[in-house]
Design a binder for these strands. Structure first.
Lengths: 135, 135
DNA sequence: CTAAGAATTAGAGCGCGCTCTAAGTCAATG
DNA sequence: CATTGACTTAGAGCGCGCTCTAATTCTTAG
């Protein structure tokens, strides 16, 4: 079969992942991403696999994992299959922290909702029938 | 009635709110908190009302509201009751952002969970009967 | 009365995660 | 074959939210 695997320039990769080109280079520089493939010109070419990994890393970042911890996780990936238990442990710990973060945010969500209702009551409005009037 | 309203030193306030004394002074300096009462010696004394406000601000901070936006909200509070609609609007907008943040985090939570299960499958383990063995 | 420990201030410093700059190379179009 | 614009690098800069420092004053225990 002809291996015309689609490849992406850094700008295309940036658009597909929502991570800026600057940041993609930065991630590579700090060893978070392995050196990616290059065109003969020296320009970076991202594969689907690269994109998938970047999306996974984005998922970790947006859930609050520090860059250092992500670097550690990537080091485990590079070290081979015998680190899979360690990777599971790292992800499970992170998921645990995320669970607590979600619980906290939900409590704060309630508090904010209560404050809104309190203010609405002060205005003599009924919370559920409030219609935003134009000023 | 004797007004012996309980007051707290800055360290006590820090312990009750989980915000460091350094940060409490910082918040006051940048006008996020109004100047708090003082003992004759010049030391700060926090009332229950102060504590409550700090807790509310903590709630906004921990849900990702920038300091600038919190300063704006406090300015509305100082400006009087006619700003209540604006305060409602600010809080409602923040709650909307928080809703989206929660949705994103839940999606990421799922992705992380899937990754964990994937790794566990690689180890030939059954996800729900995994028992953490000592190493 | 002394000494320890908590409070005060203004301002400097820091860790994080980008984000941008400058100087240069390369690719594609008319 | 010149121009436009994307790409390259190493390194500087930045915005945020604290966090700490230094020099000083106040409170409290012995």
């Amino acid at each position: 079969m002809s291996d015309v695997e689609p490849q992406y320039t850094i700008e295309e990769a940036a658009q597909r992942t929502g991570v800026s080109a600057h940041t993609l280079r930065y991630y590579e520089r700090i060893g978070l991403l392995d050196p990616v493939g290059r065109a003969p010109s020296g320009h970076r070419r991202y594969t689907e696999g690269d994109i998938g990994l970047i999306e996974f890393l984005t998922c970790l970042r947006q859930t609050g994992m520090p860059i250092r911890a992500m670097q550690h996780f990537m080091a485990l990936m590079r070290a081979g299959d015998h680190t899979i238990p360690d990777r599971i442990e790292a992800l499970a710990a992170h998921r645990e922290a995320l669970t607590e973060q979600l619980a906290l945010l939900r409590r704060h969500f309630e508090a904010i909702t209560n404050k809104i209702e309190y203010y609405r009551a002060l205005l003599g409005e009924h919370p559920d029938e409030l219609i935003r009037s134009g000023h």
